[in-house]
Deep mutational scan, measured.
Amino acid sequence: SADYSSLTVVQLKDLLTKRNLSVGGLKNELVQRLIKDDEESKGE
């Protein structure tokens, strides 16, 4: 998976916004949300 932890919070929020995901929470939560979304989209 992508190394989201190396991105800035601003970059993470931009990715979340593009996916229509919540941008609330700490950086670690944003990273986990993106990883979870990646895993769910692979399952389709």
Rank of each mutant, 00 (worst) to 15 (best):
E29T: 06
L7Q: 04
V23Y: 06
V23D: 07
V31W: 03
G24E: 15
E44T: 13
E39D: 08
L7W: 10
K18G: 07
K42F: 10
S1I: 13
V9S: 05
K42E: 09
D38A: 04
G25F: 02
N28V: 10
G25M: 01
E39S: 08
G24R: 15
T17Q: 12
I35L: 12
L34Y: 01
L15N: 02
Q32F: 07
D14Q: 12
S41T: 12
L21R: 03
E29S: 06
S6H: 11
V31I: 15
G43W: 11
V9G: 03
D37Y: 14
N20K: 10
L26H: 12
A2K: 13
R19H: 03
I35V: 10
D14H: 12
Q11L: 05
E44S: 13
D37N: 11
N28G: 10
T8M: 04
A2H: 13
K13R: 15
L15H: 04
L12G: 00
Q11M: 07
G24Q: 15
D38S: 04
K42G: 10
L26C: 07
N28A: 14
A2T: 14
K27D: 03
R19I: 03
V9A: 05
Y4V: 01
I35K: 08
S5E: 13
Q32I: 08
L16I: 03
K27G: 03
S22E: 09
T17P: 01
L16M: 03
Q11E: 12
S22P: 15
K13L: 08
G25Q: 02
V31T: 04
L34F: 01
E39P: 03
S22C: 07
R33A: 06
L21P: 02
E44V: 14
G24M: 15
V31N: 01
S41L: 10
L7A: 03
K27H: 08
E29L: 04
V23R: 07
S22F: 09
S6Y: 08
E29F: 03
K36E: 11
L7V: 01
S6T: 11
S5W: 15
N20S: 07
S5C: 15
D3G: 10
D37E: 04
S1F: 14
D37Q: 06
L16C: 10
K13I: 14
L15T: 03
V31L: 06
R33E: 03
L15Q: 05
G24F: 14
G25N: 02
N28M: 11
K18R: 10
K36N: 11
L16T: 01
Y4F: 03
V10P: 13
D3V: 09
E40V: 10
D38C: 05
S1T: 13
E29D: 12
V9M: 12
G25L: 02
G43N: 13
G24L: 15
L21D: 01
K13Y: 06
Q32P: 01
V9L: 12
V9H: 06
S6R: 12
D3W: 15
N20A: 07
L12Q: 00
A2L: 14
L34H: 01
L16Y: 00
K13V: 11
I35R: 08
G25W: 02
L16V: 02
S1R: 14
L7I: 02
Q11G: 04
E40A: 13
N28I: 10
D3C: 14
S1K: 13
Q11T: 05
Y4L: 03
R33D: 02
S41N: 14
E44H: 14
K36H: 10
D38L: 05
D38T: 04
A2D: 09
N28S: 12
V9P: 05
N28E: 15
S6C: 08
L12Y: 00
D38P: 01
R19N: 03
N20E: 06
G24V: 15
E29I: 06
E44Y: 13
S1Q: 13
L21M: 06
V10N: 14
T17Y: 11
Y4Q: 01
I35W: 06
Q11P: 00
G43L: 14
A2C: 10
L7R: 03
D3N: 11
Q11K: 06
Q11D: 06
D38E: 05
G24C: 14
S41K: 15
A2P: 14
L7F: 08
L30F: 02
K13S: 05
R33T: 04
I35P: 02
Q32K: 08
S41R: 15
Y4T: 00
E29Y: 02
N20D: 07
D38V: 04
N28C: 10
D14G: 08
L26R: 12
G25D: 01
S6W: 08
T17L: 14
R19G: 02
R19V: 02
E29P: 00
N20M: 07
L12M: 02
V31G: 00
T17K: 15
R33Q: 03
Q11N: 04
K18L: 10
S22N: 08
L12W: 00
K27S: 04
L30S: 00
V31C: 05
E44W: 13
K18P: 01
V23I: 12
S1G: 12
E44Q: 14
E40K: 13
G24K: 15
L7C: 07
G25T: 02
G24A: 15
L15W: 04
N20L: 06
K42Y: 10
L16E: 00
E29M: 06
R19K: 05
E29G: 03
L26A: 13
V10E: 15
E40M: 13
N20Y: 06
N20V: 04
T17D: 07
K42D: 08
T17A: 15
A2Y: 14
E44I: 14
V31D: 01
L15P: 00
G43C: 10
L12E: 00
N28R: 08
T8F: 03
Y4M: 01
R33M: 05
D3Q: 10
L30I: 03
K18V: 07
K18E: 09
D3F: 15
T17M: 13
V10A: 15
D14I: 14
K36T: 09
S5T: 11
E40Y: 09
L7K: 04
N28K: 11
L26F: 09
E44K: 14
L26D: 15
L34W: 00
Q32S: 08
V23A: 09
S41F: 09
V9D: 06
R19E: 02
V23F: 06
I35T: 08
D38I: 05
L16G: 00
N20Q: 09
S5D: 11
